[in-house]
């Protein structure tokens, strides 16, 4: 057991959970937006990147990490609101491929604009001082910042759960995802709900992007890989399911970190192999409803 002790596996497991936390944050937004608006949001990775860059810009101009962590997601959520209102809304009722192509194109535009503003090369982002160092978690020393990412994700998930399950607006979202017409008949302006859901999803993506910055740095292309991984999480967990996104996000994160321990070059392949296996056994994903796409 030299090198591959249980402690090392335990630490790698935690690394996987931290990685999974970022996947979860991306996947809940994608899943909510798809469940409500039937929009496959290919710009979600671009919003993730934009969150990191807006945060970076704020920190370059004197804000500390914590202020950036609040302001950047709000700013990107504002961009998301404008995108839904101006670009996506005219495409409702025209089939799933229209908003898909629109957001796909939009993601290129956002990435290119960031390249123009910040250059092609990336920036490192310092871990905030309070979260530097490592703590003993029983199996060994684990970076404090990664624990913070896990905790922040847990808080966001709990808040989202409360919002969806315990508030009136959440009830509108749950009902509207299944039957927007009856919700309209009962007096709700569904288009306003769609707007808010899109803004919420993009804001959470931006938060994930900025959370990832101290771990991985920022580059204009950072949204591409995580978008693909988040789509895998949504498919594995089941479209439109918060619990599905949480479970599948953790699973995918752990699969990636474990594979990279044994065969680093295989880690991305492993994600898609996992997705293929899940789709063969359970096409609607862990918590998904069958026939959602029909």
């Amino acid at each position: 057991m030299n090198g591959l002790s249980l402690d090392l596996l335990g630490l790698q497991l935690f690394t996987g959970v931290a990685l999974g936390a970022l996947y979860i944050l991306m996947a809940v937004g994608l899943s909510l937006i798809f469940g409500m608006l039937t929009v496959v949001n290919f710009a979600h990775g671009a919003f993730y990147m934009l969150g990191a860059y807006v945060g970076l810009w704020l920190m370059m101009h004197g804000a500390n990490f914590w202020i950036a962590l609040v302001v950047a997601p709000l700013a990107v959520a504002g961009v998301g609101l404008a995108v839904e209102r101006v670009l996506i809304r005219p495409l409702y009722g025209r089939g799933i491929d229209y908003p898909l192509l629109l957001t796909f194109g939009l993601s290129y535009i956002i990435v290119e604009l960031v390249r123009v503003a910040f250059g092609n090369t990336g920036y490192p982002v310092d871990t905030p001082e309070a979260l530097q160092g490592a703590v003993d978690i029983g199996v060994g020393y684990f970076p404090l910042y990664r624990l913070f990412v896990i905790a922040a994700t847990a808080v966001i998930l709990a808040a989202l759960w409360f919002f969806l399950e315990k508030t009136s607006f959440g009830l509108i979202i749950r009902a509207g995802a299944r039957d927007p017409q009856i919700v309209r008949v009962l007096g709700v302006d569904v288009s306003r709900v769609w707007l808010i859901v899109f803004g919420l999803g993009t804001g959470i993506a931006a938060l994930a992007g900025l959370l990832s910055a101290p771990l991985q740095g920022v580059i204009p292309e950072m949204g591409g890989p995580i978008l693909a991984e988040a789509f895998v999480v949504v498919v594995v967990g089941g479209m439109g399911s918060l619990a599905g996104a949480a479970v599948a996000g953790l699973l995918v994160g752990i699969v990636v970190s474990m594979t990279s321990l044994f065969a680093p070059e295989m880690s991305r392949v492993a994600i898609f192999a996992l997705m293929a296996i899940v789709l063969l056994i359970r096409p609607q994903g862990f918590f998904g409803r069958a026939g959602l796409m029909s």
């Binding site: 009830l171 039957d179 009856i182 008949v185 009962l186 007096g187 709700v188």
Partner: peptide
């Protein structure tokens, strides 16, 4: 108010939440 032929009871919600839907707006 309109009660459609297909009733359109929302799946996944209990009776109380379906009633609450009628009051949301």
């Amino acid at each position: 108010a309109y009660v459609p032929e297909e009733r359109r009871i929302v799946a996944g919600l209990d009776v109380r939440d379906n009633l609450r839907l009628g009051l949301l707006a």
